[in-house]
Design a protein around this nucleic acid. Structure first.
Lengths: 146, 146
DNA sequence: TATTGTTATACTCTATAACTATA
DNA sequence: TATAGTTATAGAGTATAACAATA
């Protein structure tokens, strides 16, 4: 028996859900393929693979990092052959950064590994729970976006 | 009416779910109250508030950090008046670290703010979706723990 | 003059290695 | 000797400030 006036139901669920999401995110984060790349570097590669070529400034804004930090980060990625720079077609100040094939392969390997860990755990679940997670994924996705 | 066959295979759902969880975690992380504390410091305070007083070594192991890093982190927290050290009752080598009232208040404020953000978003959801999230939270919690 | 990107420099966080005190 | 904790030092990542090139 619950008393809505005592504890707002939404707040309790929100609290539980936050704890759960953060804990699961930590587990997923630890499933990284390659310790040689930092989280920011992996995130940047991921952004490039989703958005296509972007300028360093756009990348910095997207990853919430200052431009000089992105400059250094990209230097590392370029040195590792994971991205390439090309001059902007019309604006001589700008540069376009794109993922290389090698970078793309690395992202995919990384994703595959994380997916595998989670997929294995879902195989142990009853079908009903999988269905719940499927619906929850959509709902949470909208929340995360909004 | 549901068709088990229509539900995407485990790997597809795992991939979607991972993306969603990571994105949501990022949003929740950005709801931090106090930028003056690092994520490790907040996590350490949280651990102390859940487990009670612990030694620096125990904390280092729990937070997956090396002992010297924990020494420095605790020095900052103590300087800010968020934790206190007391001598171990029987072993003169050990030290016990506990959260102060101020530390506890900070943790609670931090949690409240994150919960508020998520709770607000859940108030916009239909009751049915809230129920799904409630069930999903339990399932995901078990996955994260296991 | 404003914007894009880089270089110079400093700060934070974490690590390994070496040291001190206690068991 | 072994363990708990700290200090010394180094490396990675990111920040702000100053600079160069282009619009």
């Amino acid at each position: 028996m619950t008393y809505a006036n005592e504890v707002p139901a939404d707040t309790v669920l929100a609290s539980e859900l936050r704890t759960t999401v953060m804990r699961l995110a930590r587990r997923l984060r630890n499933q990284r393929t390659d310790d040689s790349l930092s989280l920011s570097q992996i995130a940047t590669l991921g952004t490039l693979s989703r958005h296509g070529a972007l300028t360093p400034s756009e990348l910095a804004a997207h990853e919430r990092v200052q431009p000089p930090s992105m400059t250094r980060l990209l230097a590392k990625l370029e040195e590792a052959g994971l991205v390439s720079r090309t001059d902007h077609p019309t604006d001589g100040r700008q540069v376009l950064v794109a993922v290389s094939d090698k970078g793309l392969a690395m992202i995919k390997a990384d994703r595959r590994r994380r997916d595998a860990w989670l997929a294995q755990r879902m195989r142990d679940l009853p079908t009903e729970d999988v269905a719940v997670l499927h619906r929850a994924s959509e709902i949470l996705g909208r929340i995360a976006e909004g």
